[in-house]
């Protein structure tokens, strides 16, 4: 499946990356090459093969249902680029 510049532009929005026109160009050709290589997976017969999401397939790891102290607010905000001591600040979300 060939990758187009429009595909790359769409994915850059999904991935929340702003790419320059030059980056979109390079990315289209590089991703195209990598995806063409990866396409060889299509030749493997995987009929009736269960997908394997983890190398060590442990399941149902439960922790005791006990309340524990969480990160204090001051520490949780310490690395935030913008905050007001109570919460994180972001650009206006509603209206102009």
């Amino acid at each position: 499946m060939a990758i187009t510049r429009a595909d790359v532009e769409k994915v850059s929005l999904l991935a929340r990356l702003q790419l320059t026109s030059a980056e979109l160009e390079t990315m289209t050709s590089e991703l195209g090459q990598i995806v063409a290589y990866v396409d060889q997976l299509a030749e493997v017969d995987t009929t009736d093969v269960e997908p394997m999401a983890h190398a060590v397939e442990v399941s149902n790891v439960f922790a005791a249902d006990q309340a524990r102290a969480s990160l204090p607010r001051e520490q949780a905000l310490a690395n935030a680029p913008r905050h007001n001591q109570r919460g994180y600040l972001v650009p206006p979300v509603l209206g102009d």
Partner: peptide
């Protein structure tokens, strides 16, 4: 597909 090949 990759997850299936991973099992193989």
């Amino acid at each position: 597909k990759a997850l299936k090949v991973r099992r193989l």
